[in-house]
Nucleic acid binder design. Structure first.
Lengths: 121, 121
DNA sequence: TCTATATGTCGATTAGTCTCGACACATGGA
DNA sequence: TCCATGTGTCGAGACTAATCGACATATAGA
């Protein structure tokens, strides 16, 4: 709940939302702080505070690699946030958001498709 | 994208997140502005601006019923926001967030269950 | 140890948000 | 028309967020 507020606040800022999307695209390798700042055309110290806010919200994580600090998106956080949104909507009455799940599924194949893929092996 | 920023900003505030959840619970009837303010123990004018922000973000909608103004949650908005989060995560590689969908599904039965429910009629 | 590179922290300025009293508008009934 | 009730708008004060220059730290190589 408090975690959701932090996550929403972190994503409610254009630069940070862009950074988050960028790191999503660069999963699972991540990107160093400096390169993120360069790509976004933002001073490195400004970017540093944005990255800190995203990290505090649990949406990204940092890992030091010699001189570089690599940032990566935390997929569990996306899952948790989407889950919060959807379960919030359910509110004890699953019939309301069945169509919601239905619309989400075509985007990424759900477990049925994953199972099929496993069967191919 | 800009819509997502507005929605995130609207939900990144404790009172507004609570109001949104309250209106989700009260779907599809909704609640009048005054009662929302009373339940949240917030002055009516403060609540009025919060409701305006949620409405501008497209998360709720207002309908005048004689003297009352009834607010209702907009389920399409939740769907759109969750969809944005999930598709964002996909980023062309569906295999990443298949487990995400898989975790969401048990919460609300997907179309298969809805079809079963229809079959019972 | 010295220098260069990569990143973070501090502090000040600017901009935006939150809150709420006071007032305005809108509806319905006396 | 007058009053009561339900909402919205305005404006001011307090608080919080965003930005960036200047400085600090951390690592690697000469």
């Amino acid at each position: 709940m408090e975690r959701a507020i932090l996550a929403f606040a972190a994503l409610a800022q254009p630069t940070r939302l862009d950074v988050f999307r960028l790191l999503m695209v660069h999963e699972p390798d991540g990107l160093p702080a400096g390169e993120i700042a360069r790509r976004m055309d933002v001073p490195h110290n400004t970017m540093s505070s944005h990255l800190a806010i995203l990290a505090r919200a649990g949406l990204i994580e940092a890992e030091r690699r010699s001189r570089l600090i690599i940032y990566r998106a935390r997929l569990e956080a996306v899952r948790a946030l989407a889950s919060f949104l959807v379960k919030d909507c359910c509110g004890g009455r699953p019939e309301i958001c069945a169509p919601l799940i239905a619309e989400l599924s075509p985007c990424c194949p759900p477990q049925k498709f994953a199972a099929e893929e496993l069967a191919h092996d």
